[in-house]
């Protein structure tokens, strides 16, 4: 069990990239990196998988497309359309495909509406973001100008500290329990 934590604080994102790579190479567990902005190139070093947000957007978009199509089919053609047939500009509403060109805009809007909103909701849920949620960042300066690397260790503390001291670390804070 690794239950002890070191918080190493850096001033520059390049140093974070270097140190995380070195720590990983020495088989030390880097639990988390907190930063004020996205650090490009960190995800593969940290071993983060690619996010599937775009895939969810695609699925939600497909749901929106079907919803828009079915809604229009029910209101204009099959359900309401059968009970109260409308003849607008000489265009009878007995078939879907004859009217399809004028249905495209709303089907498109439904696709975008569903994809954008449901993906954003998924994003908020996955990141545990909601009004009243508390930040998990150990140091408030990480939204300003500091980069914090959270390292888990058990017995190999000297090894971790030695590696950190070789880098441009500005602070090393130890915590006893996770």
């Amino acid at each position: 069990m690794r239950d002890k934590i070191i918080h190493a604080i850096f001033d520059d994102e390049q140093d974070v990239l270097t140190v995380v790579k070195d720590l990983k190479d020495s088989n030390i567990v880097v639990n988390e990196v907190y930063s004020p902005f996205p650090i490009h190139g960190l995800d593969p070093i940290l071993g983060l998988k690619e996010t599937r947000m775009a895939i969810t957007a695609f699925i939600y978009g497909c749901i929106g497309l079907s919803f828009g199509g079915l809604l229009i089919y029910y209101i204009m053609i099959s359900g309401v359309g059968k009970s109260w047939p409308m003849n607008i500009g000489g265009k009878p509403n007995s078939t879907f495909y004859h009217n399809l060109p004028s249905f495209v805009p709303i089907i498109f809007e439904c696709t975008v509406l569903f994809a954008a909103h449901l993906m954003s909701i998924t994003y908020l849920i996955r990141n545990n973001l909601y009004p009243g949620s508390k930040t998990t960042s150990p140091d408030p300066r990480t939204t300003d100008d500091k980069f914090l690397v959270e390292i888990l260790y058990n017995e190999d503390k000297n090894n971790v500290v030695r590696l950190l001291e070789k880098s441009n670390v500005t602070e090393i804070n130890e915590k006893d329990e996770s």
Partner: peptide, 13 residues
């Protein structure tokens, strides 16, 4: 919303 700036959150962001 309790934003903390984790690496995974930035990736999703």
């Amino acid at each position: 919303f309790g934003w903390s700036g984790k690496a995974k959150h930035w990736q999703r962001f």
